[in-house]
Design a protein around this nucleic acid. Structure first.
Length: 1044
RNA sequence: GGGCUUAUAGCUCAGUGGGUUAGAGCGCAUCCCUGAUAAGGAUGAGGUCCCUGGUUCGACCCCAGGUAAGCCCA
């Protein structure tokens, strides 16, 4: 006996029970153990930062990580799944700053780096529990008990080792460069961090006049960052371009010719045209005089980066605040003026603006220029500008000393690594990611912060540097090495080394490193390679599969690949699935400030993890952004999960009534019915498609395939097979139906296991494990189903499609005639064609579905339909004018059948109009299909059929009985009787109906499981009154026994 | 400004190596079926397949240009 299954199901409760089962029986561990020693399928967990609660988008990533891992496990691979947590870096520091209510590095240092680091370390555990709970609840099997944490000594030691490799390859260097710098956090950011924070903002757009030194004229210069004007040292033009000098309001201005009309809207007069190169070397008066620098500045230089697409074609150069500017300054030996301090405030030298944050200084500077009448015009511009990805402060391009990895030097290797990766979707490979690599710039590695992996470089006063690659190396060189070693700041800073070259004391540089370097090091650091697990590492590298959201293209996907390329000249992953974003139901990005975030628990506690997972897997391609709406989850439950559940529950209900045990029987495929062969053919086809899809990371495709199969199983196979389960004798056909349905359900459970691990487990448990004690105890320990190609019968499936098509057309015909299906009709005739001739094998199905007495194929189309032709008045009217009524009459009298055939062959129809031969075009004649009298006809494409609608007394009586049976069935249900209960039925009705009922007594009794049928006006039991064909019938039913 | 992606029914999405009438689900309306079903079936309303041009006998599909949205970069 199977565990009884109700048609109603509490999915959340079910899932919690399964979680319990997995936990108690260590199924995850068993599923790993099961495959130990098999071929490996390597998965890497991209470590989340657990310093906030996980959201729906995390469920997305974790579900996709899970599905392919489960699938590969079922395919026989050993798939270790080590968890990991990203614990360092600005995101963590920022949370602590918020908690402490501080807002600058100065304040942090007042509190003390020691305390600050401690707090950071504590906070990384704060939400790990939330993450573990969620991970667990959604059924993502991940080994979190053995997770790697990026702050641990072992992890850091590996990272140091990697840095040392890079240092030894001469790819790690310190440079004075313009970096993107967050003035609030007081640190440069790497380009992949900058990439996270572009925002549309309004900035000033000002045109400033720079007066020439020895001429009465002005250079017109455009900028969107007035604060950089304080540090101006030169102007740049493009020497090949055309410039003009114009006169306007008695003032002379120089600017690019092509931009003239863009910039100057008022009347002006062109004084002369001049090439850019004539301007080079011309000197101008500095705008401000806050420095003493006088040499080699305040003149026009040539620069090929000067664009004539916007501005004035004359660019102001402030080497401290632009990459191009800095390069130009190097090239031309221009001085660098730096009037902004590390917190983004104007230095005291610039007395008029001292202490102002640069963006606040903007309006004051504009006002100053205005007063001095050197501001030409002032506008606003809307453009995207980078902001700090965590604290939202506008970033500054700012010249600083900082550490870089020379990734641009290994660009070709990066491109080669990329060429070996399979991207899903594949356009990322040479699109977004490939382009990014093509334009690779050096990795800005250092962060002037506190909580992170310290940069392991020590230097002395003589400029000697040393990069430490292991703790042992550090200990050997250290003056003093503590017993309890913590590589974090501030402790690490206290360790001084003796310079091996000059024996001077060495101190560590103050920087920590980009936390993305930490996570990119996980393939090695999670195993403490090369200090431990040397062999294990090589068996775990590279990953077969990783999966994160699209925003990691330039984050983790990049850092993982960059590091592995430097170390091993190949990518650390072979296949990567990029996931899209999850928006709210209106397509807006979810954000806390908007208040439109969805707490995954609200779905998990109400609709369950399987439904949510199914939505994420099947709603659309994973990389397409999704608009998340909980109503869609409800639809999935109604449409798919419950359909499956009810198919399953149907099986269990009847199998239990019949005490059917699938282990006791076997019936050869050849001996099963057509319907069985058909569904098994569909099943094997589905297995093949799902297997192929999951193997190609196409979960969506596979899911849709399963959905379609379940629909066929429920709405055709089971519907058509119901009676086979109901009949009382235990013949081969019944067993065959049981075996077939059983096989389908068990196979679906296995196909679904990677998608919906809970419900598939529930079904498997009951259908397989509960009856067969030598079976595996979990569906997740099972092998993935293998498609039996020889059972796939394309012809059979096509035939069944036509059967369903004919049935559907037959229903449409009944509908047109408004004759309900319960009312039997004499016959259906189908036009015999190559397509339909096989229908004769499905006579029973068609007759039953359409409730007709006989089925016939006829090659004589006239028996099914006649054509009627009419003139197309819209076209013929204008052509023939008043003669149209004649044409109408002529057509009427001609042979409609023949004309229709001519028109259908798309040929012209000849008619005689007033002794004249006229030709009518095919489109000028309309064809109607007319059914033979007392018939209803349907035609679709090549398929044509007709239903006879003549109702004899016998047929009407049968209709009456079927109506009565249905009503009694409903009555049984309402009365709460069990399906297997037999009943006593008492009927009170008119005499003529009594005769009819007696005639069909056997049918009625069998259908309703009536063991005793009595005609009487003394009703008892559960009583109902019906009105059938305007005749009153009263029925009382009571339980008399049970068939089991 | 550049790159990538997307644009198909009110909503969520399929689709085609270029070929009669472009599909599904949800929602809506009418009708039907039902002792597994919270299901199912039929019919109907609802489409400029984003726009413009090109290639072609034929374009939702291919090409070019544009528009809008999203992501990424300068």
């Amino acid at each position: 006996m199977f565990k009884p299954v109700k048609s109603k199901v509490d999915l959340v409760k079910l899932e919690n029970n399964i979680l319990e089962f997995w936990k108690n029986n260590k199924i995850f561990q068993k599923s790993l153990k099961n495959r130990e020693g098999s071929k490996k399928f390597i998965f890497y967990e991209g470590p989340p930062t657990a310093n906030a609660k996980p959201g729906v988008h995390h469920v997305l990533a974790r579900s996709f990580k899970d599905i392919f891992s489960r699938y590969q496990t079922m395919k026989g691979y050993y798939v270790p799944r080590k968890g990991g947590w990203d614990t360092h870096g600005l995101p963590v520091e920022l949370e602590i700053e918020k908690k402490l209510g501080v807002n600058s590095k100065k304040e942090i240092e007042e509190i003390g780096i020691k305390r600050f680091s401690e707090l950071c370390k504590q906070s990384v555990f704060e939400y790990v529990e939330d993450w573990v709970k969620l991970t667990d609840r959604i059924g993502f099997w991940l080994d979190m008990s053995d997770a790697y944490y990026t702050f641990t000594n072992n992890y850091i030691e590996t990272v140091w080792w990697i840095l040392k490799q890079i240092y030894d390859k001469d790819l790690l260097y310190e440079g004075y460069k313009v970096v993107t710098y967050c003035p609030r956090c007081g640190t440069p950011l790497s380009s992949h961090e900058v990439a996270q924070g572009y925002k549309e903002v309004e900035d000033p757009s000002v045109y400033v006049k720079f007066k020439l030194k020895y001429e009465d004229s002005n250079f017109l210069v455009w900028t969107t960052t007035p604060w950089t004007l304080l540090s101006n040292v030169a102007l740049a033009v493009n020497s090949d371009e055309d410039y003009v000098e114009i006169s306007k309001n008695n003032e002379k201005l120089i600017l690019a010719k092509t931009l003239l009309n863009e910039v100057i809207k008022e009347p002006y007069e062109i004084i002369k045209k001049l090439k850019g190169k004539v301007l080079i070397g011309k000197r101008y008066e500095p705008l401000f005089n806050y420095t003493n620098i006088k040499n080699n500045c305040y003149f026009v230089v040539d620069a090929n980066f000067v664009s004539l697409k916007e501005g004035t074609g004359i660019v102001h150069i402030a080497p401290a605040f632009g990459v191009d500017d800095m390069n130009l300054a190097r090239e031309k030996d221009l001085p660098i003026i730096q009037l902004v301090d590390e917190s983004g405030e104007i230095k005291s030298q610039a007395v008029d603006f001292a202490g102002l944050f640069v963006k606040e200084a903007d309006p004051k500077i504009i006002k100053n220029l205005k007063q001095r009448k050197i501001l030409f015009k002032e506008e606003k511009i809307l453009h995207s500008y980078p902001h700090c990805w965590r604290c939202d402060t506008p970033l500054l391009y700012y010249a600083r000393k900082s550490w870089f990895i020379a990734t641009s030097k290994i660009k070709d290797k990066l491109l080669k690594s990329n060429s070996e990766i399979n991207w899903y979707p594949d356009h990322i490979k040479y699109g977004r990611f490939g382009n990014w690599l093509e334009n690779n710039i050096d990795w800005s590695l250092s962060r002037e912060r506190y909580w992170g992996t310290p940069l392991p470089i020590w230097e002395d006063n003589s400029g000697h540097k040393i990069c430490i690659g292991s703790f042992k190396e550090l200990k050997d060189l250290a003056k003093d090495f503590p017993d309890k070693f913590d590589p974090h700041r501030p402790y690490i800073d206290e360790i001084k080394l003796i310079c091996p070259q000059c024996k001077e004391e060495m101190s560590r540089v103050k920087e920590v490193i980009d936390c993305w370097f930490d996570s990119g090091s996980m393939p090695y650091a999670q195993l403490h390679y090369p200090f431990e697990n040397y062999e294990k590492f090589y068996n775990n590298f590279p990953a077969d599969f990783i999966c994160e959201a699209l925003d990691q293209t330039r984050g983790w996907f990049y850092t993982m690949m960059a590091i592995s390329t430097i170390l091993f000249e190949k990518s650390s992953y072979k296949n990567v699935v990029c996931l899209g974003l999850i928006n709210d139901k209106h397509g807006r990005r979810m954000s806390k400030s908007r208040g439109n975030t969805v707490d995954p628990w609200s779905v998990l506690n109400k609709q369950g993890a399987d439904a949510l997972r199914w939505y994420l897997f099947t709603s659309s391609s994973p990389w397409v952004n999704k608009n998340f709406d909980v109503d869609i989850i409800n639809e999935i439950i109604k449409k798919f999960i419950l359909t499956l559940w009810n198919s399953y529950s149907f099986f269990v209900v009847y199998a239990n009534i019949d005490k059917f045990n699938p282990e006791k029987y076997s019936i050869k495929f050849e001996e099963r019915s057509v319907l069985d062969k058909w569904i098994l053919s569909e099943l094997n086809q589905t297995i093949a498609t799902v297997d192929k899809s999951l193997n190609n990371y196409a979960a969506t495709r596979g899911g849709k395939e399963i959905e379609q199969f379940v629909d066929k199983l429920s709405n055709w196979y089971i519907r058509r097979s119901r009676r086979r389960f109901w009949k009382s004798e235990e013949d081969k056909d019944k067993i065959s139906a049981y075996l077939t349905l059983y096989e389908c359900l068990v196979t679906i459970a296995k196909l679904l296991a990677p998608y919906m691990p809970f419900i598939s487990e529930e079904i498997y448990q009951n259908l397989v494990f509960s009856i067969s004690k030598d079976s595996l105890m979990s569906v997740h320990l099972a092998d993935f189903p293998v498609s039996e190609e020889k059972l796939i019968d394309k012809d059979l499936m096509e035939e069944m499609n036509i059967v369903r098509k004919v049935v559907s057309m037959g229903r449409a015909a009944r509908n047109k005639a408004s004759i309900k299906v319960r009312q039997p009709l004499p016959y259906i005739k189908v036009f015999k064609t190559e397509q339909t001739e096989k229908l004769i094998n499905y006579e029973v199905v068609i007759k039953d579905e359409l409730n007709v007495k006989s089925f016939e194929l006829t090659p004589d189309l006239k028996q099914i339909l006649n054509y009627k032709v009419k003139p197309n008045l819209e076209l013929l009217g204008p052509k023939y004018g008043s003669k149209i009524s004649l044409i109408k009459n002529i057509l009427e009298r001609m042979n409609h059948q023949e004309i229709a055939n001519i028109v259908l062959a798309n040929e012209k129809v000849k008619i005689k109009l007033e002794e004249q031969e006229e030709e009518l075009l095919p489109e000028e004649i309309l064809i109607e299909i007319v059914a033979p009298s007392e018939h209803i006809t349907e035609k679709e494409g090549e398929i044509a059929l007709t239903l006879n609608t003549v109702l004899s007394k016998e047929l009407l009586d049968e209709g009456f009985i079927r109506e009565l049976v249905r009503l009694i069935q409903n009555q049984r249900k309402k009365a709460g009787f069990r399906i297997e209960n037999t009943i006593k039925t008492i009927i009170e009705c008119s005499e003529d109906k009594e005769v009819v009922i007696k005639e069909h007594k056997d049918y009625l009794c069998t259908e309703t499981l009536t063991t005793e049928l009595i005609f009487s006006d003394k009703l008892s039991g559960y009583i109902e009154e019906f009105n059938i064909d305007k005749k009153k019938v009263r029925v009382g039913i009571s339980v008399s026994g049970s068939i089991t």
